[in-house]
Simulated assay, not measured.
Amino acid sequence: MKFDLARRWPTALALLLAAGVIASGSGDDLGDAVSGYADALPLLPLLYVVVAQLGRPRVTWPVLGAGVVLLFGLGAQDAVPAGGVMIVVALGVLLWGMLRGSPHGGTVLGVQVAGAVAFGVLAVAGLVVDADLGRYLVAAGWFGHGVWDLAHLRLARLKGVVAPSFAEWCAVVDIAVAVELLFLR
């Protein structure tokens, strides 16, 4: 079986990103690493909720870009908490889905929202406990989201919610983050 880099560019890009993040952050304090990864974790399932409701998988990468800019922009100031903004966005999209309907149907939107809640709970739990326990909760969230990404690649009902290239890329990044938190910190 031949490895086709042109088709697996999301995996290659994710591995390069993960290697860079691991190399640059390996000396960070465990508490800072857990906090940073916990803050970023809710962005991933929120992206799925937004793209599912938009019904256009091709906007996945631009939505990710906007989310990253929003996350870092909110993190650079102290007036508005990033988590609060993500909750408001999620509630707004949920309300939009309830009023307008969802392109993939209510069940798929409900699955996306349930995922956002579950991963958000792991992120918040990882922030409120000590860093040693928090690393395991946040790592579980990132690993779980990696499995979530793979489900969106493989399960017929969830295919087409986000761009397949994003789901592949995100699965590799998510699992690499979980491994970093568990074994390299």
Score class of each variant (00 low, 15 high):
1 M>E: 09
2 K>I: 14
3 F>G: 03
5 L>T: 03
7 R>W: 00
8 R>F: 03
9 W>H: 00
11 T>E: 06
11 T>Y: 02
12 A>M: 12
14 A>Q: 13
14 A>M: 12
18 A>Y: 13
20 G>K: 13
22 I>Q: 07
22 I>K: 02
24 S>D: 13
31 G>R: 07
32 D>S: 13
39 D>V: 03
39 D>C: 04
44 L>H: 09
47 L>N: 05
47 L>C: 05
61 W>G: 02
66 A>R: 05
68 V>F: 13
70 L>H: 06
70 L>E: 03
71 L>M: 14
72 F>A: 14
76 A>H: 05
76 A>V: 01
77 Q>H: 00
80 V>E: 14
80 V>H: 12
83 G>L: 14
83 G>F: 10
84 G>A: 09
87 I>T: 15
90 A>P: 01
92 G>Y: 08
94 L>H: 07
96 W>N: 15
97 G>E: 03
97 G>P: 02
98 M>N: 07
99 L>T: 08
104 H>W: 07
105 G>C: 00
107 T>S: 05
112 Q>F: 02
115 G>C: 06
117 V>T: 11
123 A>I: 12
128 V>F: 09
131 A>W: 09
134 G>K: 01
134 G>F: 04
138 V>R: 08
138 V>M: 11
138 V>N: 11
144 G>Q: 05
145 H>S: 06
149 D>Y: 11
150 L>A: 06
150 L>E: 01
150 L>G: 00
151 A>K: 04
154 R>I: 04
155 L>R: 03
159 K>M: 13
161 V>T: 10
162 V>P: 01
163 A>F: 00
164 P>K: 11
165 S>P: 06
166 F>G: 05
168 E>K: 09
169 W>Q: 12
170 C>Y: 04
171 A>S: 05
172 V>E: 12
172 V>K: 07
172 V>F: 10
173 V>Y: 09
174 D>G: 08
175 I>T: 13
178 A>W: 06
179 V>I: 14
182 L>T: 02
185 R>C: 02
